[in-house]
Every structure is written in C-alpha cells, then in structure tokens.
C-alpha cells in the first residue's frame, strides 16, 4: 500500500486544498497512491471526519499533525486525545525531546520532516544542538523540496541510520502524491500506520506525476 504521509488541507493556514478535491484528483489522474495523511500545521484536526469520503473513493484518509520544534518541523502519526494533552501543538518552540518522549508514551510516532531544509529542517540544527535522541525515521522525499534539500535529508538518514518516509507536503490539490511511502501491509487506521512505521518495513518513493 502506498500512502502520501504529508499533506495539508484548508485547515492549515497556508493550505488551499479541499480534501474531497484531493480524492477526486487522485482518482481522475490515476495518482499511484492508496491514500494520504493530513498533517495540518500546529494542530490536530479533531472536527473533520473523512470516513465517508474515504469509502466513496476507496482511499485511506488519516489525520496526523505537523508541529514545530527547535530542530524544525516534525510530523506526528497516531495522535490521541492523551497525546494532545501532553504538549501544546500550537507552540512553535516545542523541545523535540519532549515531543518524542510524549509520542513514545502515547503510542505515536514522531518524524522530522524536510530535514534538509534551512531553518525548519533538522539537519540545519545539528551543529547547534547535536544529534537528537530518539529519532528513528525522517522524511527523505518531500514534494516541496528545493535545490538539494532531499539530498541533504537522504545523507542525514544514511549517516544516522534513520529510516526514510516520503510525503508530498501538498498544499494545493494537484500536488498530492508527488512523494509517498510504500508499505508491505494494508493501512486503514492510525493504529495500522503506527504499527507499520514501528515495524520499519517501508520505503520512501517519488512518483512521476503527469502534467
């Protein structure tokens, strides 16, 4: 199963995509993904339920979050009410160690995203803060990467022996599925996703998207 693990909808301040249009787009353009995870900036979207849309289009639609730490932005998969109580998702100065620890405690997974990006990527902060404890997975393919940002991410993953995921970081409909993660198992829920990430059997992929 192939999931785009990093996408934003209109729920994010800079997101311009409606979720139903992501679904339509994936089907109309035969984008090679089986679903996606909405990782809204600095929040977990408690309100929206995409089950009907997912069923209608035969896609897996899950929710996560993208939070901000001293090491840059971090995707969170497996968000629970208890995890939301553990730290303030809106805080743009979260300590990464606190985020990782809370995720471990509450059965979630934290994944630094676009780590090769200036300022908001983990690699840029290693010299200042050192290699953080507890990171096991980073995003090595990001659809919004510019220049050598993905190469830096892949080098970081190789150096630190991290696993790599892929996500489009889509903010508009037509950017969904540019990068994704391939799993050997089916994933239909947050719990399935967390399990699959913890088994570390997956690989980041870049998809050729026709214009």
């Amino acid at each position: 199963m192939i999931l785009d693990l990093h996408a934003h909808s209109v729920k994010s301040d800079d997101g311009r995509a409606k979720v139903q249009n992501y679904c339509q787009w994936i089907k109309a353009r035969n984008i090679g993904i089986d679903g996606f995870v909405l990782t809204e900036h600095r929040q977990f979207d408690d309100q929206s339920n995409y089950d009907d849309l997912a069923e209608k289009h035969g896609l897996t639609i899950l929710k996560g979050s993208e939070v901000e730490t001293e090491y840059g932005h971090v995707l969170i998969f497996g968000v629970t009410p208890a995890l939301q109580q553990a730290f303030d998702f809106t805080n743009i100065h979260l300590p990464l160690a606190e985020v990782i620890s809370a995720c471990e405690q509450h059965g979630a997974v934290a994944v630094p995203c676009h780590p090769g990006r200036k300022r908001v990527g983990m690699a840029a902060h290693l010299e200042t803060f050192g290699v953080p404890e507890g990171v096991e997975i980073v995003e090595v393919f990001n659809g919004g990467s510019r220049g050598d940002e993905d190469k830096i991410a892949q080098q970081l993953a190789e150096d630190q022996q991290y696993m790599g995921i892929g996500g489009s970081d889509a903010h508009i409909v037509s950017h969904i599925g540019r990068c994704a993660t391939e799993f050997p198992v089916d994933i239909f829920s947050q719990q399935d996703l967390v399990c699959a990430l913890k088994t570390k059997k997956f690989k980041a992929i870049k998809l050729a998207v026709e214009a």
Partner: peptide, 22 residues
C-alpha cells in the same frame, strides 16, 4: 489546472503554480 467544478453556480477552482526552470 482545474480542481473543482460547481455545476450549479458555474464556478470552477483552479490550482495555480509558478515554477522556475528547476
């Protein structure tokens, strides 16, 4: 690229991008 069509109102939504040579 056209990403939404509302047949009732006649409104369509278009994704817009400006990309460089890279």
């Amino acid at each position: 690229v056209v990403t939404d069509i509302d047949e009732e109102t006649g409104e369509i939504e278009i994704d817009l991008t400006i990309t460089n040579q890279a």
